[in-house]
Each structure stands twice: as structure tokens, then as C-alpha cells.
């Protein structure tokens, strides 16, 4: 081991680097909440939490709609009650709009996280398998989340235009959800679209309502089996409940009713 005076001329070989190119850079700065959201685990949390909010909406939406079967007055009063809640504590529609805004934000976040996760996942496998994949555990619902989500989204836009804003419904009358709904679903094409969208929604929920437990780390051997049962039951109930409307309306079990009060609407004249 002589003390060599001349410095080495040959560069010393450095360790080989991992050839995998990073698919993205996670910059560890910014407010913690943003750092959390930047990670895909965080995005899945957001997906789960917003999904849970949207599930809550779907449940209450169904419960409200089921009043259709009580009477026209009940459902119209229900619509009125939504605008009026919570009684005299707040000015009229303030709470409703707050909830709607929350729902809107949840929806946007749900979409955005879905979109960015999709983009990340595309980068994570730039070259697809060249032979046919044979999936073992992934079911139809989990592999079609993207598409069922898009179907629900498209339908939702129509649904709002049809029944909330009335732009897609020539006979729409403010304040008479009963007849608006019945009229809308009496159109076979709309009824069919409604059914397709709700079947897509059910598949989306079948995976989502289970998946959210995983994403939020709710995992306990004692309840793990219940998570699947819950998701199946939830998706099933929503499907049955929501599908009952177009079916019963198409079968004229539920039919248009002329209003007791003004304004007289066109469908009732028919």
C-alpha cells in the first residue's frame, strides 16, 4: 500500500444507479395538506372521504325520492323543506346552498383525484402487457370504476338539466318535483338512460363502498367481512330504490297528478 503521489487518471466507477426513471417528483414542501394530497395515498383518502360524502347524498336523495310513493304533496313538501331547513335558524336556502357547495367541492375533488390517479397509473406502466392478462381478484366493478364514474357523471349533467334547472325538460315547472320527475321518466329514452346510469352507479358503489375502507385504513379482522357485505347491501339498496322509479313510472303505477294549486302545468293538461 504505497502512498501514491499521482492522482488516479481513470475515473473511479460509481455505483450503478437505479435505471427506473421516476414517474413523478414529490416535492416535500408546501402546506401539509397539499403535501398529503400530492401523494397518491393522500389522493385515495380524498377519494374515499369525498366518496363517503357522495354516498351520503345518494342515500338522502333516494330517501327523499321515495316520498314519491307517499303522495305528490309529500314529495313537494320535502322539496320545500330542503329549501327551508333548518327552519328559522338560518335564512332560507342558505343551508341548502352550503350543502350543495360542499357536495360540489366533494364532487370536483373526487373527479380530480380520480383523474390524476389515472394519469399517474398510466405513467406507472408505460408499456402494457403484450399478452392477455388473466385477472384473478380484480372484478368487473373494480376494473370499470373509471367508466362507471364517467357514465354517472354524464348522466348527472343531464339529470341536473332535466330536473333541477329544467333546461332539458320542456315541461319543467319550478316547485313541482313530483310532476317534473314523473313526466321526465315517462319518456322511454330518459327512463332507459336513468336505468343505465343507476346500474353504473351501483357497480361504482359496489367497489367504492368497499374500497373506501381500505383507503382510509379501516381494517380490523373482526369487521373485514362486514365491509364487503356493507358495500354489496349499499349498492343493492341504491340500485333497487333508484330503479323502482323508472320502472313504476313506465308501468304507470305512478302517474302524473294535476296540481291542487297554481300554476297549472302542461303535463297535467295532457
Amino acid at each position: 500500500m504505497a502512498t501514491t503521489a499521482t492522482p488516479p487518471t481513470k475515473p473511479v466507477k460509481t455505483p450503478p444507479v437505479t435505471p427506473a426513471r421516476p414517474i413523478r417528483k414529490l416535492v416535500p414542501n408546501g402546506p401539509p395538506i397539499l403535501r398529503f394530497y400530492r401523494s397518491s395515498v393522500g389522493k385515495k383518502w380524498v377519494m374515499a372521504v369525498t366518496g363517503l360524502m357522495l354516498m351520503g347524498f345518494v342515500v338522502f336523495h333516494l330517501i327523499g325520492n321515495l316520498k314519491l310513493y307517499l303522495s305528490k304533496e309529500e314529495i313537494n313538501l320535502y322539496g320545500e323543506a330542503l329549501r327551508d331547513m333548518p327552519g328559522h335558524l338560518l335564512p332560507r336556502t342558505v343551508l341548502l346552498w352550503t350543502l350543495r357547495s360542499g357536495l360540489f367541492v366533494a364532487f370536483v375533488l373526487h373527479l380530480h383525484s380520480a383523474y390524476s390517479l389515472t394519469m399517474i397509473n398510466r405513467k406507472a406502466r408505460p408499456q402494457q402487457y403484450q399478452s392477455r392478462r388473466d385477472y384473478v381478484a380484480a372484478d368487473f366493478a373494480s376494473r370499470t370504476m373509471r367508466w362507471t364514474g364517467i357514465i354517472v357523471l354524464l348522466y348527472l349533467v343531464f339529470h341536473l338539466m332535466d330536473l333541477t334547472w329544467g333546461t332539458a325538460n320542456s315541461e319543467w315547472v319550478r316547485g313541482d318535483p313530483y310532476n317534473n320527475l314523473v313526466y321526465s321518466l315517462q319518456r322511454p329514452v330518459v327512463a332507459l338512460a336513468y336505468a343505465v346510469a343507476n346500474i353504473a352507479l351501483a357497480f361504482h358503489l359496489y367497489h367504492g363502498a368497499w374500497s373506501m375502507f381500505q383507503s382510509m385504513g379501516i381494517n380490523n379482522p373482526r369487521i373485514n367481512k362486514l365491509r364487503r357485505s356493507f358495500a354489496t347491501a349499499f349498492a343493492g339498496l341504491i340500485l333497487v330504490g333508484n330503479l323502482s322509479f323508472p320502472i313504476l313510472i313506465q308501468l304507470h303505477v305512478v302517474d302524473l297528478q294535476c296540481p291542487h294549486t297554481e300554476p297549472t302545468t302542461a303535463p297535467c293538461k295532457a
Binding site: M1, A2, T3, T4, T6, P7, P8, T9, K10, V12
Partner: peptide, 12 residues
């Protein structure tokens, strides 16, 4: 005892 020596150059 080798303190202060440098390893043999890889050019050797």
C-alpha cells in the same frame, strides 16, 4: 498502522 496511506490507484 495504515493511517495516512491512500489505496493503490486503480491505474496501477
Amino acid at each position: 498502522p495504515l493511517l495516512g496511506t491512500t489505496p493503490l490507484s486503480v491505474d496501477d
